[in-house]
Each structure stands twice: as C-alpha cells, then as structure tokens.
C-alpha cells in the first residue's frame, strides 16, 4: 500500500511539475513584450522638427544604417548610409551640401550619385513619407 501511494505521489508530482514547466513559457509568451510593435518595411526615422535645416541623422533601417537629411531648403531625403566603397557609415557635410564618407573621402550628391572619391556606385535612395508627427522611410520598389 505504501509503495502504491509513493507511485501516485510521484505521478501527481510529475504531472504537476511538467504542467508548470510548460505553463511558465506560455504565460511569459502571451505577456506583452518590451518592444510592443513589429518593425516593418517602413521605419520611423525621426520626428518632424527634429532636424534643423542642413543637418542629418543616422537611423536604423533593418539591419543596416540609413541617413536622413534635412536639406538647406527644408526637404527631407533618406539614403542607405552604407558607403558603396568599403561599407563605412556615411555622414552629411552641410558645408558643401554633400553626403560624405569619412573613411576615404567619398562624396555623393543629394541624389545619391558619386561626385568624387573611390565609391563605385551611387547610394540607394529611400522614400520619405510624413505621417502625423513621424518621418517614415521605406525602400523604393
């Protein structure tokens, strides 16, 4: 009789334990995560009025950096920030109004075309859209 009770205890404990170890991940899973939204093809690159004219910022576009530029005329432009030469991250040079790669002085105009330096190809330009307060950047298709 004692042995039987032990087995029943073991059985009950085993079932309870297994259920808990499976319930724990499930409960954690259904709880809202920290980053509560899926990041999709268009990325929020910034807010309007965040950039003064003739300044820029680097933002994360998928797994690579992008560059958002507010031109002197106040037009928003976005490109990939990955230089086509050796994949350095480019910056914006307000003085000459060109995109500039600090690694080997590659320069691009505000259409992404190479002006000077070693980059073999132009920078890919992205679409910029303003939705409410947000600046949305997406790939051109």
């Amino acid at each position: 009789m004692k042995r039987r009770r032990f087995i029943d205890f073991l059985l009950g404990g085993g079932i309870a334990g297994t259920i808990i170890t499976f319930l724990y991940p499930v409960l954690k899973y259904i709880w809202p995560p920290k980053q509560s939204e899926v990041i999709v093809k268009s990325v929020v690159a910034g807010k309007i009025n965040e950039l003064a004219p003739n300044t820029y910022k680097i933002f994360k576009f998928g797994s690579s950096p992008g560059i958002l530029i507010n031109t002197k005329e106040g037009e928003l432009k976005a490109f990939t920030a990955v230089c086509t030469h050796l994949s350095c991250t480019v910056t914006y040079d307000g003085d000459t109004e060109t995109i500039f790669c600090p690694c080997h002085n590659g320069r691009f105009d505000l259409k992404g075309n190479v002006i000077s330096g070693p980059p073999p190809r132009p920078l890919e330009a992205y679409n910029v859209e303003i939705v409410g307060e947000k600046i949305l950047v997406s790939k051109r298709t």
Partner: peptide, 8 residues
C-alpha cells in the same frame, strides 16, 4: 523580442 517566442 517575445519571451519564449523562439520556443513556441
């Protein structure tokens, strides 16, 4: 991002 999402 989701906790245990990889598991599920």
């Amino acid at each position: 991002q989701v906790k245990f999402g990889w598991l599920i």
